[in-house]
Design a protein around this nucleic acid. Sequence first.
DNA 1: CCTGTGCCCTGACAGC
DNA 2: TGCTGTCAGGGCACAG
Length: 271
Amino acid sequence: MIRVDMPELPEVQTVVDGIQEVVGLKILGVHTHCLKLRQPIQTDLSDRLEGSVIQMVFRRAKYIVVKTNCDVLIHLGMTGKLLIKDHTYQRVKHDHMEIHLSNGKKLVYHDPRRFGMVSWHSNYQDYLAHYGVEPLSDAFSSDYLYQHCRDRRTTIKALIMDQRCVVGVGNIYACEALFLAGISPLKQAKVINKNECLKLVAMIKKVLNQAISEGGTTLKDYRTANNSLGYFQQSLNVYGLEGKGCQACGSSIQNVKITGRSTFYCEHCQS
DNA sequence: CCTGTGCCCTGACAGC
DNA sequence: TGCTGTCAGGGCACAG
């Protein structure tokens, strides 16, 4: 078992659950320190947010949605963190934005690799209009996935990572779910049968739900120790385990590239 | 429309 | 020891 700490859907959900205390607070001001994220932080972000009240914080795909008088979308990218700090907190390297709140605390956006994003929209749904169903919703069913697989020559792994089909399934959980479903990541989507769709959908929901429940516990510990929020760590079966023995059969875990992403699987258990 | 490739960015790590 | 090269990957632009 190895541990990783990239913010996939469960990590984003855990962060959202952990910052509910900001709901109802007034935004006194916003300071941005680096405009060059995945897309530039809008220069009028502060003007837009100052004086407004945070009405709701929730997750859509891997975005954190902060509803005020407009919608603020926050994406953590690879290395992003959203931290609650008190008024004595001093900014450190890679803190790109601070939102000053009416209870004296600050919501701090920290992202060394700057793959993340912060932006305001009048309606967040317009920005995410091309996004598919939530993986943990009833809309993501085996029938839904099966229909999306029709006539698709791409691999099943690329398909479940395509946000137009289903959102929030990143590289790690795609690998893990395919392992648990016994399906090769290299298999063409169009030859996946209904029973395989049933298993795969169930396993995607399982790994995500499991990670969310584990994350809640880890986050609580993390907060106690550091008085701050961050994403957590997840135990894995195949991801990052190239050359190691498969837990189920002992065969060596393979690593192949699929659409540029490292893809870990067991040739014996997945076909 | 469908599919694959490359880019953005910094830090961790391997190899010399 | 310090340098260089490689890799990590979500989302999107772009090419074929």
